[in-house]
Write a protein that binds this DNA or RNA. Structure first.
Length: 566
DNA sequence: CCCAAAGGCCAC
DNA sequence: AAACGTGGCCTTTGGG
């Protein structure tokens, strides 16, 4: 792998110690300087939160690497107004290193301990890890760092793993900062959207007026005066009694049917879902002081994507994105990477034909232009079918035509699928490795699984193998795309910090969603922030794929509210 | 009472 | 419209 220009997160410090290790101990912190090999230099300092913040502020001028569990330490710094450039997150690094096929051997003899624990800063007692923790003595951060550095240096591709860990750690910094800053959220706008759709907010336990009207219409049409439309069994029974032949109460099934109840029922489902998931109660719970503060879990998804806990931050319905409003005098830069996953696949596979199709803006139109498929919709569903492992339906049927035109790209995902079907593991570009088959599923891949006794029946084993193949097929693409996105995020974060350094009002990240970012910026810096977003995307492409000619175009908009983008 | 599964739908 | 990948989270339901 070629690294065209070093990212800030990979640079050496300008002076002083290479890195500092910080550990939370009791109600204070312990800080130690260390050399490049992680060996402590000098003695440890015990510091309170305020002292720590001042020490870090001073030492940060040399751009050292901060070695810590970001969740445990960084919030105390953020609340004191201190931010840092680079980190090595020991907990996130442990998770990657233990799994990666490049480094796993260094950890097979290391029992599960606190460094493997749940990412939750306040884990509930009684869980699986809790039991295992009691038996495993956890090494301190100095020993853990040394072990991690040995594992990295000794592996077959240190630069890939080093980059992955630097990106993961930069993500941890960004996540903590975004949680601290919060996503600008207008409660009055949110309330207006809900009121326009459902009627004014009712007392608890009462349906909003528009919803009540819909429920009454549904009950009348079905002659079911006591029907609870939220109960799938109840609803299915009533539909059938009224002569509506459906297999389930899913909206997609209902849409196939012609009956006067369908229209109000579909409206009800849409509205009830919005109110349950992102209604007034959500607003009360998750929005305070004009900010929504989701709890991001960096690397919370097996593929390396982020997850969130509480608030459903990664599934904000488009209907309520109008409530995301920039502060007065500020703007939002909203950007998403167009067709990120197929572009990443093209570069991963070295498929020049697919890369060429993506030159310019729309990759799907580029595929149409090759003559492989007749229209954009076919290109899109064919490509998604190939990434997800569709075998039938309109998407699946298009795959062979794409295979013919883009043999390298399609061949790579096919190969990943076959590895998975055999029970093997696959890895992303930077070396994040998929977990092996677990539990009963592992048995499906052992030799001699023909049905006998309590073995898994052959048909079931084949089904498990196909599921696994679709997982590994998608893993290499989704996971490598997540690496591109992390690289984009990490580089953007440092670019934004450089736009108006040492001023009170700086452009800053407020949202990250797989292939999309939102920057909240003073209005007069919006153009510069948008430029940083574009430049970071170029850097991400070059960092991950060197000189391979692949474009990662963005759809970028400078807006007052999220819903005005795209 | 708590808890997990099922059905469903939101996002990418 | 697509049944085909990764998740979170809501309500209902039924078990202990």
């Amino acid at each position: 792998m070629k690294v065209a220009q070093p990212l800030e997160v990979l640079r050496a410090p300008t002076a002083g110690a290479a890195q500092y290790i910080i550990e939370r101990r009791g109600d204070g912190f312990v800080l130690r300087a260390a050399d490049g090999a992680g060996r402590p230099v000098g003695s440890e300092e015990r510091l309170g939160a305020a002292e720590l913040a001042e020490r870090v502020r001073t030492l940060e001028s040399a751009h050292p690497r901060w070695v810590w569990d970001t969740q445990q330490v960084y919030p105390a710094l953020l609340s004191a107004g201190v931010r840092v450039r680079r980190a090595h997150d020991l907990r996130l690094a442990r998770a990657v290193l233990r799994r990666s096929e490049l480094t796993a051997a260094s950890f097979t003899d290391v029992p599960l301990d606190d460094w493997d624990g749940t990412p939750d800063p306040a884990p509930q007692a009684g869980g699986l890890f809790e039991l295992q923790r009691e038996t495993a003595a956890t090494a301190g951060p100095v020993d853990e760092l040394a072990r991690q550095l040995v594992a990295i240096i000794g592996c077959a591709a240190p630069s890939r793993i080093r980059l992955l860990l630097a990106l993961e750690s930069a993500g941890a910094l960004a996540a903590a900062e975004m949680a601290w800053d919060g996503l600008p959220w207008s409660a009055p706008e949110h309330d207006r959207i809900l009121t326009d759709l459902a009627g004014p907010r009712p007392p608890d336990g009462v349906r909003p007026q528009r919803v009540e009207v819909l429920v009454t219409r549904i009950r009348d049409e079905l002659h079911a005066p006591r029907l609870n439309p939220d109960s799938a069994p109840d609803l299915l029974r009533s539909l059938r009694l009224a002569g509506v032949a459906v297999e389930s109460t899913r909206s997609s099934a209902l849409q196939q049917v012609d009956h006067p109840v369908i229209a109000p029922l579909l409206q009800y489902k849409k509205l009830a879902r919005l109110l349950a998931a992102n209604g007034w109660h959500w607003l009360d719970t998750w929005v305070a002081d004009g900010r929504f503060r989701p709890d991001y879990l960096v690397g919370g998804v097996v593929t390396g994507r982020w997850a969130t806990r509480g608030g459903g931050a990664l599934q904000l319905p488009k209907q309520i994105r109008g409530a995301v409003v920039a502060d007065p005098g500020w703007r939002l830069v909203v950007a998403d990477a167009a067709q990120l996953e197929p572009r990443v696949l093209a570069a991963l596979a070295g498929d020049h034909a697919l890369a060429d199709a993506g030159r310019g803006r729309d990759l799907y139109e580029g595929i149409v232009a090759t003559g492989a498929v007749p229209d954009r919709a076919s290109a899109k569903y064919g490509v998604l079918g190939a990434l997800y492992g569709a075998t039938s339906g309109p998407g699946g049927r298009l795959v062979p035509r794409l295979s013919h035109r883009f043999p390298k790209a399609l061949g790579l995902v096919e190969q990943a699928a076959r590895t998975g079907e055999r029970g093997g593991v696959v890895s992303t570009l930077l070396g994040r490795t998929a977990p092996p088959p677990q539990g009963v599923h592992a048995a499906a891949f052992r030799p001699g699984i023909e049905p006998s006794g309590d073995d898994i029946p052959a048909q079931r084993a084949r089904s498990i193998a196909r599921d696994r193949g679709r997982f590994t097929r998608n893993f290499i693409v989704q996971g490598s795309a997540a690496e591109w996105a992390l690289c984009w995020l990490a580089d953007l974060r440092t670019r934004l910090a450089a736009i108006a350094p040492d001023t009170a009002e700086q452009p800053h990240l407020v949202y990250f969603l797989h292939d999309e970012v939102i920057v909240h910026t003073p209005a007069h810096l919006a153009q510069q922030a948008a430029q940083a977003v574009e430049q970071a995307a170029v850097t991400a492409g070059r960092t991950l794929f060197g000189h391979f000619p692949i474009d990662f175009p963005l759809d970028t908009a400078i807006v007052d509210r999220y819903s005005d983008a795209g």
